[in-house]
């Protein structure tokens, strides 16, 4: 990332654009990420939102944005973005809108829309090469209606619709891979607790034309069950345990921007959250914990195989 103007945290913007006092929950990891993303994108940004927690940011006078906002039906935000982008292009071409007054069109949805019912509209927008940025704040459930399971919910998490047994039986949908399979110019994962990594990625995305898609894992005190002051710590654990890989897809390649060489055991991330408490009390569910750990290990084994120099020896077995 030699092209970045951000080489250390001190270089990140110190004046923030997003207003304070919004109706979001205290410690919202999604707001933390949005805050940082908005600082990099700047005021010439129009947000296109689909129903979710951040729809609450539209409630006047608690609107923290400096610019405009369009709400769409839950499945349609990227299609709404198409209309805005086209209108801006018409203004540029026919009415002489100066380039400095052009806007970044940013789709802002939660995982419910991004991983689920909005995926078809996203696929269509990428296929059309729409010049937009998608920011998904992923809190791994339908937070706005009380944290029911979504397609982003991780295996073993208890949600309002998975209250029994081990919790959610499914696996978190690989949205990064699904988006990347469309071959857009840029896809990245970020998290608010890694602000430098986030800033560099948004800086890069801002300079690219076409579909650019960002997933921000968003620790959610209300839905995940932890004290709001732990939000950053939970986010750091998500990265350091390897649960949330920080990576980007650019020029047809996936590059990991932070590889936790000594990964913290996944149990320390899970144990810090109420939604996984049933895996620890009244007794540790070693089988499920081992299963989750193995899946994380397996992921990183694949990554390490990719980045490791070629070797004449056979690949080692049993690495996950």
């Amino acid at each position: 990332m030699s092209e970045t103007r951000f080489t250390n945290v001190k270089q990140l913007p110190s004046v923030h654009l997003l207003g304070s006092g919004s109706p979001m929950c205290a410690g919202c990891g999604g707001l933390e990420a949005l805050h940082q993303v908005y600082d990099i994108l700047g005021t010439n940004t129009v947000f296109v939102n689909a129903a979710g927690c951040m729809t609450l940011l539209a409630v006047y006078p608690f609107t923290p944005f400096r610019g405009s906002w369009l709400y769409t039906a839950m499945a349609s935000a990227p299609a709404g973005a198409q209309g805005i982008r086209d209108a801006l292009d018409v203004l540029k071409e026919r009415r002489g809108l100066p380039p400095e007054e052009d806007m970044q069109v940013v789709v802002l949805t939660g995982d419910g829309s991004a991983y689920g019912m909005g995926l078809s509209a996203t696929s269509g927008a990428i296929e059309r090469g729409l010049d937009f940025l998608y920011l998904c704040y992923d809190n791994e459930g339908y937070g706005n209606t009380g944290q029911q399971s979504s397609a982003a919910t991780p295996h073993g998490a208890r949600t309002a619709t998975d209250l029994t047994g081990i919790g959610f039986h499914g696996e978190k949908k690989p949205l990064f891979d699904i988006w990347a399979a469309h071959r857009p110019p840029y896809v990245a994962t970020v998290i608010g607790s890694e602000p430098l990594d986030l800033a560099r990625k948004i800086e890069k995305a801002k300079a690219i034309k076409g579909p650019r898609l960002i997933i921000a894992l968003s620790p959610c005190p209300t839905g995940w069950g932890f004290d709001p002051q732990e939000s950053v710590a939970i986010g750091k654990l998500a990265v350091n345990t390897g649960v949330w890989p920080l990576k980007e897809y650019v020029d047809g390649k996936v590059v990991h921007t932070k590889i936790p060489r000594r990964r913290v055991p996944v149990a320390s991330y899970l144990e810090a959250q109420g939604r996984f408490a049933h895996l620890f009390k009244p007794e540790r569910n070693e089988a499920v914990l081992a299963e989750i750990q193995a899946r994380v290990d397996g992921y990183w084994a694949g990554v390490e195989e990719v980045v490791a120099p070629p070797t004449p020896t056979l690949p080692q077995g049993g690495r996950g």
């Binding site: 706005n144 209606t145 009380g146 309002a160 619709t161 998975d162 209250l163």
Partner: peptide, 13 residues
């Protein structure tokens, strides 16, 4: 899930 009907789904679940 959709307010104000979600509780029915949660109860059934």
């Amino acid at each position: 899930p959709i307010t104000p009907s979600t509780e029915t789904a949660e109860r059934f679940a």
